[in-house]
Design a protein around this nucleic acid. Structure first.
Length: 638
RNA sequence: GCCGCCAUAGCUCAGCAGGUAGAGCGGCUGAUUUGUAAUCAGCAGGUCGGGAGUUCGACUCUCUCUGGCGGCUCCA
């Protein structure tokens, strides 16, 4: 006979546990795995996330949620957000908490409150620490809607969330000390679990609803332990040291001046990298049947009216007036390519026509959005436009996806795909959009990659697949893009004669692979910490004569390397060899060769690869071959 | 563009109740001739981001402009 006062719960490992009815989830989990009970932040009971204090009254399943699960991590972040709200409302009693969700990299809480100051933040930190010390429990209460409405009567934001609770469901709130927040839960048991919470900063946020009041956002991140937080802060400090803006300065790659905000000045070493990137991409263009073109930087307003950019992006364009006529600096290359297609009658035999253009583009990005090389006002894209017939679209997209994978693998980057669909402001017919979106999705599925759906994020003329890579601080940047466009060709009146003798409008695929040299290079710099692969390094080899006596041999060997096409420097012997080796490391030179009596005598070099502890001896011919090989293969490491 | 913060030598930074500035690195010169992450010495280099105001006097306080940083928004 089953004992009515006991129930059976099944743990993740399949173990069936008999526990008293009404035992809490925390008690059940502690019995299941006592050794790890301190890591259980919350529980899943019958697949539903609940507090550890949740009382189980019937048979079912149970599983722990820890920081290693996304759901558990989110619970810790969300509880951290509550802690921030508790602290802020203690300091500024008039502050109205709105919402405080977990995010991909931490949490935030938005408040309707006067603009915050760093002093406020210090006070918030102090109050949080105090609450953590007191280990104040998160207590769940469920109440009828009317009670909740009374409780949050002074907070219109919370009233709105209460209205969103499905009818018939009770409204739940959590008490933390004297702070009470509307919340679905669950939470960690008490604030003592939040010793690893860190406030990252604050800022005003502009709600998408223009009529709404601006809110103040406090951002933070939580870890289960203070040690976890410490190692995160350490990693973050290391990442900051890899900031491409500092590296670009230090390595003499690019610079900026006040007089051209957002417009990079490429220094000689940086320009070497740009040319190598161009070469990398151009080799593919040749293989894949592209033609390169060049079109004007300035077009009259009417061209942008035709393309649709005038209506959508006029405010973000640089304009110039000449002889009473308004011209716009081109913010993208598409109109130029459209005009080239239209410059004479076209046949289906010419399709796909692939026109590539690497031209400077100008966009009047809002000043507050500029960010080193990753968000600039003047840049060059590895841009191309493919004029295709409808039945060619999918094949072209597949080729592009394959090339993207190859290109990003060369740089050892992790990348992600987003499929962005029809936005609110769009051109054309819905059916066309649906068809285009379906085509892109088919191509993605066929190539077997994982992708994310970004509803409403498409360009105004068509859906797109975007490639994103992350910088050293985890900020995501769009690089490559594949955009299907059924609109612009029609607006420009593009036509080709088909095999059926009829005139047809081509479809245009707008695409970039690396995106822009500027942004791509910025992210690559951060990923490599400036240790660029040899093929990209502005200086590939530095030759160090041990003394003046070896200067001639060093210069002669450098000449041989230069003759091979290597980028090589000689570091003369006015400094100690130790100093020059150090400088070469600091300058991130991939190969340092030292020439002294020994090497001159036996025709070798002492080779030190970047980051290596010691040098190895190698014949000069052997070194030249090794280097040529690694550069030509575009190997990542020296 | 919005909120907050920041701006001192080429770079990284120190400085001051308001009395016109200093270090390290880098640069230049000299000495040293060096064997794998910093040889030594000397010198040059700044109207303290621009403008205005307060003051006997402003790098320092106030306002403003410009640029940058962290977010937000945006990203054709």
């Amino acid at each position: 006979m089953p004992d009515a006062s006991r129930i059976t719960v099944i743990a993740p490992d399949g173990r069936r546990m008999s526990i008293p009815a009404g035992a809490t989830a925390g008690e059940a989990l502690a019995e299941w795995d006592p050794a790890h009970r301190g890591q259980f932040l919350a529980a899943l009971v019958d697949g539903r996330p609940v507090d550890l204090s949740f009382r189980i009254d019937r048979d079912g399943t149970i599983a722990p949620l820890t920081f290693d699960d996304r759901a558990g991590r989110d619970i810790l972040q969300h509880s951290s957000a509550h802690l921030v709200a508790k602290a802020l409302t203690e300091i500024l009693p008039g502050a109205l908490p709105t919402h405080g969700p977990p995010t991909d990299d931490g949490f935030y809480y938005d408040f309707d409150v006067r603009p915050l100051t760093p002093t406020d933040l210090d006070a918030v930190r102090t109050a949080m620490t105090e609450s953590v010390r007191r280990a104040e429990p998160f207590l769940r209460r469920e109440m009828p809607r009317a009670d909740a409405e009374r409780l949050f009567g002074a907070n219109p934001y919370k009233l709105r969330y209460i209205a969103d609770v499905p009818p018939g469901e009770p409204v739940s709130v959590y008490d933390t000390g004297s702070f009470v927040d509307l919340c679905r839960g669950p939470h960690v048991p008490d604030t003592g679990w939040l010793a690893g919470v860190h406030i990252l900063g604050f800022s005003a946020i502009v709600p998408s609803d223009a009529a709404a009041r601006p809110l103040q956002r406090i951002r933070g991140i939580g870890f289960p332990t203070a040690e976890g937080l410490r190692s995160y802060l350490k990693l973050r400090a290391e990442a900051e040291a890899r900031d491409h803006r500092a590296l670009g300065q230090k390595l003499g790659l690019f610079t900026f001046v006040d007089e051209a905000p957002g417009c990079p000045l490429w220094l000689p070493h940086g320009m070497v990298v740009v040319r190598e990137l161009e070469r990398f991409v151009t080799e593919h263009l040749r293989e894949a049947g592209y033609s390169e073109v060049r079109t004007p930087l300035l077009f009259a307003q009417s061209i942008y009216e035709t393309s649709g950019h005038w209506d959508h992006y006029r405010d973000d364009m640089f304009l110039t007036v000449s002889e009473g006529r308004t011209f716009g600096w081109k913010p993208m290359n598409c109109p130029g390519s459209m005009l080239i297609f239209r410059s004479r009658a076209r046949s289906y035999r010419e399709l796909p026509m692939r026109l590539a253009e690497f031209a400077p583009l100008h966009r009047a990005e809002a000043s507050g959005t500029l960010h080193g090389m990753t968000r600039v006002r003047e840049f060059v894209q590895d841009d191309a436009h493919l004029f295709v017939a409808e039945d060619q679209v999918e094949g072209e997209v597949a080729t592009l996806l394959a090339w993207i994978a190859r290109a990003f693998t060369t740089f050892r980057l992790d990348w992600t795909y987003d499929l962005s669909t029809r936005p609110e402001k769009y051109l054309g017919e819905r059916e066309t959009w649906d068809r285009a979106e379906a085509t892109l999705e088919r191509a993605l599925k066929a190539s077997g990659v994982a992708y994310r759906l970004s509803p409403g994020e498409g360009a105004f003329y068509g859906p797109k697949i975007d490639i994103h890579i992350k910088d050293s601080l985890g900020r995501k940047w769009q690089t490559g893009t594949i955009q299907l466009d059924y609109q612009m060709p029609a607006r420009f009146g593009l036509q080709y004669q088909g095999s059926d003798g009829q005139l047809h409008t081509p479809i245009v695929v707008h695409r970039t692979i690396l995106g822009s040299w500027e942004r791509f290079f910025g992210v690559v710099l951060e990923h490599t910490g400036g240790r660029l692969p040899p093929w990209l390094s502005p200086v590939q080899v530095r030759v160090l004569p041990v003394t003046d006596a070896h200067g001639g041999a060093a210069r002669a060997f450098a000449d041989e390397l230069a003759h091979d096409g290597r980028r090589v420097e000689v570091s003369e012997s006015t400094e100690s060899i130790g100093k020059r080796v150090r400088s070469a490391e600091v300058d991130r030179i991939p190969y340092v060769v030292v020439l002294g009596d020994r090497e001159v005598a036996d025709g070798t070099v002492a080779l030190r690869r970047r980051g290596a502890r010691e040098a190895v001896a190698m014949s000069r011919a052997e070194f030249r071959t090794l280097l040529a090989d690694r550069v030509h293969r575009r190997e990542f490491e020296p």
